[in-house]
Every structure is written in structure tokens, then in C-alpha cells.
């Protein structure tokens, strides 16, 4: 254990509480609904950290806080890598319907603005091969792609700027089982090849078991249990975890 503790961190979340306001005028005032209560954990270099819990427990809110899309009311989020990226669940709304697969993957490089067209072309081609998107799909619009292909494009777009830390928010939940297995395999091989760390959010404990090294269990905005996959799955301490495991059998 102590050996793992020594490993470099990519993310530290310290005592974060966060939530949403409704009502009020132009986003000020109104009632505050706290979603996350005093959440703390680390993501270590090279690991795939699972985050499980029923829907509505605040998993996606936590992702938003980590990405800086939602300011925490209390606590802090410390990044040790530049610009984390996210892969979303819904492969339908994660790609711009106006543009081709190639365009969507190239766009982050255009925004970055440091590479000329030739270099961009090389990098996009490389990345699309890495995610194993068939070449005839390069110029296709999202509506012409299958769910699995869209997710490959989303992954390529998230990885094109070579981030070191990726949040995957239910990335395979909208896909059928065979495609799920392919995408999980792809995520694992990309982790090894590109030296990535993931926070892998899922309500599906079987998927987390297949992919993750460590797991956080979240209940009603709190982390109730964490540990290695073997510890948590074989010797759950919390009743909530036991119930989740029971339900997934």
C-alpha cells in the first residue's frame, strides 16, 4: 500500500462540497442545493480509478467540479496535469452534428493553434488510427456513424491534445455489450500506450470490475468507501456497497 501511496498524483480533491442554485435573479441568490458533501480522494499516475454509485448521487457533478465547470462551495481541486479532458456517455450529443469526424478531432488542434496544417493532419491521422476508426468514416457526419464509432471519435478528440488525465463519464453505458467490450479494451490499451490516468464514472459495477484498479463508492454525495478493486468487491465494508454488489450480480 505504501508503495502505491508514493506514486505521483495527477489529481487531488480535498474536502469538496458543491451544488446548484435555483431561483434568484440572473444566477444570484436563490436556494442552494448541495449535491457533494466533503468529498476527498486522489487519482494516482497511471491508474484507472472507478467511481460507482446509483444515478443521482452526484457522480457527474463531481466530474463538472473537477473540470472547473462548477465552482466548489468549499474545498479545493488540485490538478498536477494540464487540461484534463472528458469523454461523455451520450455519443449523440458529444459530437457536433454539423461537422465530420475528422473535423471534430482536428478542432482541438486548431483551437490550440500551434501546429500548421500538415502537422495537424499527421496528428489527426495518427489518432484516428489509434482509436481504430475505419478510414471510410473519417469524412462522415455523426448521424452516419454508429454509437461505437462516435465514441471512438469522441475519444480521439479528447486525446488529440495529449492530456494525461481523462474523465470518462459513463462512456460505455449507451452502447451494447459487444461494443462495450471493444471500447473498454481500447481505453485500457490507450492508457498503456499514452501513459494516461482515468477517472472512470459508471453505475455498472461489472464494467468497473473489468477495467479499474481502484474504486470509489459514492452515496448521496459522499464517498462511503474506497479501495482496490479486490478489497472493495471481495470484502465490502459498507452495507451500501454490499447492496450495490448484490444488485449487479
Amino acid at each position: 500500500m505504501s508503495q502505491q501511496e508514493d506514486k505521483k498524483l495527477v489529481l487531488e480533491v480535498k474536502n469538496v462540497s458543491a451544488g446548484y442554485r435555483d431561483g434568484g435573479f440572473a444566477g444570484h441568490g436563490g436556494t442552494y442545493h448541495e449535491v457533494l458533501h466533503d468529498v476527498s480522494f486522489n487519482v494516482r499516475h497511471g491508474e484507472i480509478l472507478g467511481l460507482v454509485g446509483e444515478s443521482g448521487t452526484g457522480k457527474s457533478t463531481l466530474a463538472r467540479v473537477i473540470l472547473g465547470l462548477l465552482k466548489p462551495e468549499q474545498g479545493e481541486v488540485i490538478h498536477y496535469t494540464p487540461r484534463p479532458q472528458i469523454i461523455f456517455q451520450d455519443p449523440y450529443s458529444s459530437l457536433n452534428p454539423t461537422y465530420s469526424a475528422w473535423w471534430s478531432v482536428e478542432e482541438p488542434l486548431r483551437i490550440f493553434g500551434k501546429y500548421d496544417e500538415k502537422e495537424r493532419k499527421r496528428r489527426v491521422g495518427d489518432m484516428l488510427r489509434k482509436v481504430e476508426l475505419p478510414e471510410e468514416c473519417y469524412e462522415a457526419k455523426p448521424e452516419e456513424l454508429s454509437g461505437g464509432q462516435r465514441q471512438r471519435v469522441s475519444i480521439a478528440a479528447a486525446l488529440i491534445r495529449r492530456p494525461r488525465f481523462i474523465i470518462a463519464d459513463e462512456p460505455v453505458s449507451a452502447l451494447d455489450v459487444t461494443i462495450q467490450a471493444q471500447i473498454l479494451k481500447l481505453l485500457r490499451s490507450l492508457r498503456d500506450e499514452l501513459d494516461l490516468s482515468y477517472l472512470f464514472i459508471s453505475h455498472d459495477l461489472n464494467v468497473v470490475y473489468q477495467l479499474c484498479d481502484r474504486v470509489l463508492v459514492m452515496k448521496a454525495g459522499r464517498i462511503v468507501e474506497q479501495g482496490t478493486i479486490e478489497e472493495v468487491y471481495n470484502h465490502p465494508k459498507e452495507d451500501y456497497t454490499k447492496r450495490l454488489l448484490e444488485a449487479s450480480k
Binding site: 487540461r83 479532458q85 458529444s94
Partner: peptide, 17 residues
């Protein structure tokens, strides 16, 4: 609130873009 807009923001795209 579409995911592809969130992604573009995370990539650092300006409001105009």
C-alpha cells in the same frame, strides 16, 4: 449545455469561436 459545446470550452475555444 450540449456535450460538444462543453468539450469545445474545455479545449479552450473562445466565445466567438
Amino acid at each position: 449545455d450540449m456535450n460538444y459545446i462543453t468539450s469545445a470550452r474545455l479545449m479552450g475555444a473562445g466565445s466567438g469561436r
